[in-house]
Every structure is written in C-alpha cells, then in structure tokens.
C-alpha cells in the first residue's frame, strides 16, 4: 500500500470526520422543537400502552385467568402482559424515532443537510437523535410504570430497574433502526419495517408463554431481540430475578455496539463518500 492510499485509508477509517463531539446541539434542537410541537402528540404517546393494557390485560385477562410464570407461580394475565407491553412500547418508540422520524427529516425536511453544513458530523446527528429517543422512552416508561403500580401489577421491588431496562431496549433498536432507514427511499419501502416488526411483536412471548410452541420454534423466538427485552422486563416486574437476566443485558450490549458501528458506516457512505 502506498503512503498516499494508506493516509487516505486512515482518514476514512477515523471517526473524526464524522463526529464533532457535539451531539448535545442536536439534542438541544430536538428539545426546542418538542417544546414548540403539539403537546397532544406527546401526551398521546403515553396512552398507547395503557390502552393495550386495559384491553388485553383487563378484557382478555378476564377471559384467560392466570398464567404460569418462570418460577412456576400462577400470576394474573395482566401482570404477565404488562411488562411485555412496556418492552414493546420501548421498541416501537425507538423504531418510530429512528426510522419514520429520521426518514422524514432526511428526505422531506432536509433538516440534516442544514445541520451537516455546520461543524456537526453525521455521528453527532445519529447520537443526538438516539439520545432524544432514549429520553422520550424513559418518560413514557416511567408513566407506564406508574400505571402498573396503580393497577397492582408490579410484583416486586426489582420493578424499579424496569425503566433503565426499557432504555437499554430502546437504545438497541434505535441504533439498528437508523442504519436500516438509510437504505430506504420511499414511504412504501418503510412498510417492510412493519412487516418484520409485527410478527416479532406477536410471537416474542408477549401475549403467551413461548412454551406453546414446538422446541425449534422456541429457539427461533429466543434469537429475536424483542424476546430478550420482554423477558428482561418481565423478570424484573414479576420479581423472578436470576443470572439469566444478565444474558438479556449482554444481548442488548452487543446489539447496541453492532448497531452503532453499522449506522456509523452507513452515515459515512451516505454523507461523506
């Protein structure tokens, strides 16, 4: 390799071209925009999982009765499903913020073009957007936890750790989501995201234990990120805590690292090459 190409490769490989260390500016802009946006939109985000909980936990719960949890106890269906809804809403929020929202800003609002004309780099934008997504995720997570507490669905003090767990889940999905979004050019292509997410939502031990499936299917579900998220939060809110929870945390650690590496790579391809 000649000296010139080597130097070039080094520069291209570096993070400095992508990151000005100023993700705060992007977060700041996002918070200002939130303040001037419709508060109804923000408030309505809180109701989504609550409606699910009322409908499925109460309505369907009356129909189903109790479910056997990981420790072999019979717990009310609402207590079984509530942590899953919390994990799912963290996933949906993060996916919405990192896909639809980013897609819109990228293709219609041209917001990023303006930001990139300043000293900000693509990684500042990516991190800023992800931090915003986490912030929103935490706010909604706390709201839902309060509802769970009021309905008596937190069965253990470990439930206090559910909010950090929710942020971990949101981080994982947001990191991957942004990279995936960078491939899309039309609204309709975005529907593929729903095509992937909906089955995961339905099958990841959200509505019923995966023991209803044959073993090979169970292994398949256990490979999916949402299952780890659901099991992690459920372990905490129902108080079935063991070393297996650390496996779920590790899964998300890897997912976040891989997602950030992937997204950074894509941003470089999009904005710098």
């Amino acid at each position: 390799m000649s000296a010139v190409t080597e130097q070039r490769a080094m520069r291209r490989g570096g993070v400095r071209a992508l990151y000005a260390g100023n993700a705060r500016a992007v977060v700041g802009r996002g918070l200002v925009a939130t303040r001037s946006s419709n508060w109804v939109v923000i408030a309505s985000g809180f109701f989504e999982p609550v409606f699910y909980l009322l409908s499925l936990g109460v309505g369907l719960g009356a129909f189903i009765g109790t479910v056997t949890d990981a420790a072999g106890r019979e717990i009310p269906y609402a207590a079984f499903i509530a942590p899953a809804l919390l994990a799912v809403s963290a996933m949906n929020g993060a996916i919405y913020d990192s896909t639809w929202n980013v897609f819109f800003k990228m293709n219609f609002g041209k917001l990023y073009e303006g930001m990139l004309a300043t000293s900000l780099g693509p990684l500042d934008i990516a991190l800023g957007e992800i931090l915003l997504a986490l912030f929103r995720g935490a706010v909604y997570g706390i709201g839902f936890q309060i509802v769970m507490q009021l309905m008596g669905l937190n069965l253990s003090w470990w439930a206090l750790l559910a909010v950090p767990a929710v942020m971990l889940i949101a981080f994982g999905f947001a990191a991957i989501g942004m990279g995936v979004t960078s491939y899309f050019t039309t609204f309709q292509q975005m529907e593929w995201i729903m095509f992937v997410l909906t089955p995961m939502f339905m099958l990841s031990a959200t509505f019923f234990p995966i023991t209803v499936y044959p073993e090979p299917v169970q292994w398949l579900v256990m490979a999916l990120p949402l299952w780890h998220g659901v099991e992690l939060v459920r372990g905490l809110t129902t108080g079935v805590v063991g070393p297996e929870l650390l496996v779920h945390v590790l899964y998300y650690g890897v997912m976040i690292a891989a997602g950030l590496a992937f997204t950074t790579r894509r941003l470089r391809a999009l904005f710098l090459d």
Partner: peptide
C-alpha cells in the same frame, strides 16, 4: 402470523381456561 399467534398461541390459553 395471526393464525400462529392468536389461533394457536393465545387459543391454547383461552381454550384451556
């Protein structure tokens, strides 16, 4: 997917009850 999730999965719980 609906068949798998609701018909089979949820159905087991409901029918059991």
């Amino acid at each position: 997917m609906f068949l798998l999730a609701f018909g089979i999965g949820l159905g087991l719980l409901v029918n059991a009850n």
